[in-house]
Structures are given as C-alpha cells and as structure tokens.
Write a protein that binds this DNA or RNA. Structure first.
Lengths: 342, 342
DNA sequence: GTTTACATGAGGTACGTACATCAATTACGG
DNA sequence: CCGTAATTGATGTACGTACCTCATGTAAAC
C-alpha cells in the first residue's frame, strides 16, 4: 500500500542499499546482471524515487537563467513579472531564477550573454531570441556543458534546445484570420497586416497562417502586403494614413506583433478605430484597455504565467532527466475578447 | 544567501530548536513574549518552512476525494481522466485521489456520499454538484471535521467551501453571446438557446450572461426562450424540427450545456448544421470533431487538466493552511475554434 | 600462490523538519 | 523557603535519499 522505498527495492532484489543506490544514480561498479535484478525489482514494486527527499539529501538547488530581449515592450515586461512571480512561488522548490536582458535584434549580444552564462554554470537556461547561427552555436556549447536549454516564446527548432515552451505561430495566425474573417461583416474589403518587423520567424509564421485561412475561407477579403513599423510612431502614423486613404474599403487590421500602441494611436487619430475589426497579439495592460473600450476586437494571447511556470517546470524536468508532462506544458492559443478577459 | 532553516531562526531568536518547533507547530508551553521573539526572527530572516522536508518528516499523505456526477457525459469523463492523470503525476507529492461518482440531480445522493466520506477522514474533498440545502449541510459537517472543501466547476457560494475552482458562468455566457453576435452575418434573426436542463445554476447564469450581451450589443438578434432537452434524443429532435419550422429566420444555436451530441444530430438531420452559427460549451472528443468539420463554430471551454491540477493544488494549500497562488488557480474561459484547438 | 581489479556489503553522516522525552531553569503562591 | 507548575533546553530518532568510507568477497591475471 505504502510507497516502496530504496529499502524495499534492496530487499526484493536481494542486494544491499548501496548497490541499489549505485544503480539508481548510475554509478559504476555493479555487474550488469545485478543491475538487471535491481531494475526488475524497481519495476515489480513500481518504485519511484521520492524527488523531494532526494533533493533534500542532495541539497539540490536549481539555478536557472532566462534570457529575454531588453525592449520596452509591455509583453516582455509582463513576462518578466510572471517569471519573477513564478520563481517566488518556487522558492520552496529550491529554484532560483536570474533574468538577463539583452539587446534584441542583435544575435551577437544574445550569443555573448549565453557565453557569459556558461561561466556561471547554471542548471538550465530559457531563451527568448531569434534563431541565428550565433545563437545556435551558443546553445550547442551550453548543451555540451550539460546545461538544460528551453526555447521560450519563439522556437529555435534547428538548435539543440531540449524543449520549446510557446505556441505554434502559424496556428496563432490562422486563429487570428478566423476571427478576422468572421468578425468582418462585409464579404469584401481590404485587411491591413502590420508588424514591428517581418524578419522574425514568428511574424513570418503568423502571416503565413493568417494568409492560409484568409485565402481558403474568406477569399473576398484581401490582405495587403505586410508593412513594418519598426516601432516608430511617425512611421506608423504615415503608413496608417496612407493605407486608409488609398483603400476606402479597409475593413480590418491584423497587428502581428505584440506592440499595438502606436498602431492604435494612429487609427484613433483618423477616427477609424471603432469601425475596423482589429485583431492583435498578446494581452498587456494596454491591449486590455483597448479590448474593454472596444477598440480591439480580439487578442490572440498566450498566458504568460503559464509560460513562466512551464519553462521552469520543463527546465527542472530536464535537469532531473525526468519525462516532461506534455499535456501540462502545451501552451494554448488564447482568444481574449472583452467578455472573457482573465 | 542560502535559505534560512529552523536552526537559523533559533539562533537569531536566541532560543533552542525545540522552542522554535513549538512555535512553528503551534504547540503549547511557550511564553507569549518568546513566541513573539521567534516570530520576529522568522520575519527578519524571511524563513519559510521547507514543505517537502516537513512532509517527509511527518510522513504526510494527502488523501483527497472528488465527488462527480455519475453521468455519461463526455465532459465529466474527460474531467475524470484529467483527475486521474493529475493524481498520477502527483504521486511524488504524496497525493492520493479517490473519485466518487454519485447520481446527479439527486441532492440526497450527494449528501449521502459526503456523509460517507466523513468516515474515511480524507484531508480534502472536491465537489462538483448543484447547491442544495442538503449539500450545504453536508459541507458544513465536513468543514466541522476540519476537512478542506473546494467546489469544482459549479460554485457553492453560500456553503462553507474554502475555494471555487471553475469559471464564472455568467462571463462564459457573455463570451458565447459575443461570438454569436459577431459570427452571425445577418443583423436580424432568431437564436435558439438550448440546454439539458435549466434548473442548474450554471445554466441560468450562462443564459443570463448570454442575454445581457445579446440585448446590449446585438439587439437585432432575438434569443428564443430556453428549451430543455433532458438528454432525450427524441425530445431534442422534436424541439429542433419545431423551432426550425416555425422560425425560418433562425441564424444561431447556443447550446448551454455540455451535451452537444443529440442537438448536433438533430440539426444535422434537417441539414441546417452548416448554415447556422453553433456555439457550444466544453471541449470533448465529439465537440472537437464537430469543430474540425465546421459543424460547431466555437466552443466555450475550461481546460480540464488545469481544473484537475488546480483542485488538487488548492486542496493541498488549504490542508497546509498556506495561501493559494490566486493567479495560477484562476481558470480562464477558453474560446476554442477549429484553428486553435489544443 | 599472489597480486590486482572489480563487485558488493555494511555502516555512517547529512539534508530540514517533526516529534518525543527528560532535564533544567524560572516564576509564583503559600 | 519550599513545592509546584510553566517554560525552555538538550538530545535523540525518524522520514527517504545521497554519498562517502572501509571491509570483504570473488575471479582473473601474473
């Protein structure tokens, strides 16, 4: 009835505690035959290591680092808060988290930070960055040092990262398209797709997903070529005025990046905010306000609290070489409207 | 730097380990002045008890029970699976979960089960049931026995439950209405609101929320009086045919309960499934299929995995008399479409 | 036969906490 | 000043695991 312990395993396998310990912790000096005996005893009893007791005995401390882009975006700020909160609630689990901010759009800065991190010998690193050869290389070195690595928000698929904590951007774009197509009441018209920058893989994938669904299901709506704001208010204003002037049949705006501020401001200035369907990404204090006021119709979001906790859990699992509980770590694509605001 | 232990507290407070222990565990025999000294030392050091070590020493076992309605609904089935999975992933945390199924719609059956549970002296109970005087009373007795109680899915607000794990039904209904209003392309028409039964508080609240938003924002759409299916396929078929015949301007269906099967079947029979906007509740294998095929346009859901894990976490927190991490336990109202299916 | 390497056992200490026992100190009423 | 009760200290054991040392066994190599 009670949970079996190493003692039970030892007596069932007919060996001493020390041998069970050697097998469990992969230490040398045990004949293969004995290893098998111990392992079948483990299976027979359904023994599972008591991680909390093990961590206690080990005085284990998980030291994690999170590399985030150092930009003023509210999304990154809320993510940072969530990480801080999550690590605070995890002090009991012996997890400490250091947050490192690096200049975004500079692959060398990220690689430098990752390189610097190696010296601190953390147990795991979560990285939110664009995939570049430099970053891939730095991750490779971290892995060589035996450090757990997870990609956060943006996947780094061709790197050696252990796991990706985030959502499928293409599906997020498809979801945005579905809402756009269904929220727009007219069957024809133009849709503006606007992003901070279209060099990031996420933006590209979102656009891809968006176009897929728009073409397939809402062929009457015409998605204009993506425009880039580069986070410049003047540029945004110019673009918006230009687009609105040229296309008198503009019916919707899809803001692919997390920065909605300047875009909203520009549309508000020309008094078009309430008659356009506006779909954006990420829930921030500002986008929340805009949802409530009806300026934004829906936001495609990922729960930052979930992201933060998930990243820490996955890193810990990778450190302990334990299977990740996939169902719990699958980040959902949240659709947030003014009525289901969390 | 390192986490303070009872030893540190003892030396800072200038008392022995035994005294700190007495204070921490609320045992008698310590002068009030000394208690204060110890407590200020705890505050000063920021000491937090190492729960895993404490549980180890205590040989603590959390024995929880979950009372669910014994119906054949897929939603309850998936919830049960999620609970089983969650408890399996929590064996490491010394949590064991017993699931009890009781006849739904029978307050006496629930009360009987709760009464029977008292004998087993569990540490906590999660209850999914309608609020009735009998249930309220039974909860009261559980609480008197010092058992932690959380309401699951449906709140039991005027009972003595410690916490509610679930979503605000009224907000869920509002969300459904927003999607209905925006998905329907015509500005006038009839909307059918259909439920298994309208006696449950959840259904009433959903309907309330639904009407609020429909009236406020989509006044052209007329929501018909709620109809009850009582889970009877023949009855459903009759209702659906009747409604479709009378109202040739039927544009949408809001299925307020979790059972979509018969309703979908009936609409499919009369060939109306693809030209009606269909909004339902809860993600089940069947509703998932219907989303993919386009028969259902959106589903308002709650993540059952999250619900299950949340219930267990909250019960444990209540047992340890520790604060609940609110942000993590807030269940979101998920909007699920074919494009963001989890 | 002796050396050597390897395999295993036996036992201890530690982690941070709980809990029990008993001795020692203090305070107070008579 | 004594007796008694309340308070506090000192110490030990336990929880399940990790990790260390030392002893002993065995078998192959020399």
């Amino acid at each position: 009835m009670a949970r079996p312990t190493v003692h039970d395993v030892a007596s069932v396998a007919g060996v001493s505690l020390a041998t069970v310990d050697r097998v469990l912790n992969g230490r040398a000096g045990v004949r293969e035959e004995t290893v098998n005996r111990v392992q079948s005893a483990i299976r027979e009893l359904g023994y599972v290591r008591d991680t909390s007791a093990a961590n206690l005995a080990r005085k284990r401390e998980y030291r994690f680092a999170v590399v985030l882009p150092q930009d003023s975006s509210q999304f990154v700020a809320t993510l940072k808060d969530a990480l801080t909160e999550a690590s605070a609630s995890h002090i009991a689990d012996r997890i400490s988290v250091k947050i490192k901010a690096v200049l975004p759009e500079d692959p060398h800065a990220v690689a430098r930070e990752l390189h610097a991190l190696r010296a601190a010998k953390p147990d795991g690193v979560a990285i939110m960055a664009q995939e570049t050869p430099q970053v891939r290389d730095a991750i490779s070195r971290l892995k060589a040092d035996g450090i757990a690595v997870v990609a956060l928000i943006s996947d780094l698929p061709s790197s050696e990262r252990d796991f990706f904590v985030g959502v499928n951007s293409e599906a997020a774009g498809r979801t945005a398209a579905l809402l756009m197509g269904r929220f727009v009441r007219r069957s024809t018209g133009k849709v503006l797709a606007i992003a901070n920058s279209m060099v990031s893989r996420d933006s590209i994938d979102r656009r891809l997903g968006f176009d897929t669904v728009m073409l397939r299901e809402f062929a009457g709506l015409d998605v204009l070529p993506s425009v880039e704001t580069h986070n410049d208010p003047d540029r945004v204003r110019a673009i918006v005025r230009h687009v609105a002037a040229i296309h008198d049949d503009l019916v919707g705006v899809y803001s692919m990046g997390s920065g909605n501020r300047y875009i909203l401001d520009a549309f508000r200035e020309i008094g078009r905010l309430h008659d356009l369907v506006y779909i954006g990404h990420e829930l921030t204090p500002r986008s929340r306000e805009a949802l409530v006021s009806g300026e934004i119709d829906a936001v495609i979001a990922q729960n930052v609290g979930h992201l933060a906790r998930s990243a820490l859990r996955v890193l810990r699992a990778k450190c302990d070489d334990v299977a990740v509980f996939e169902a719990q770590e699958r980040i959902r694509i949240d659709i947030v409207t003014r009525e289901n605001l969390p």
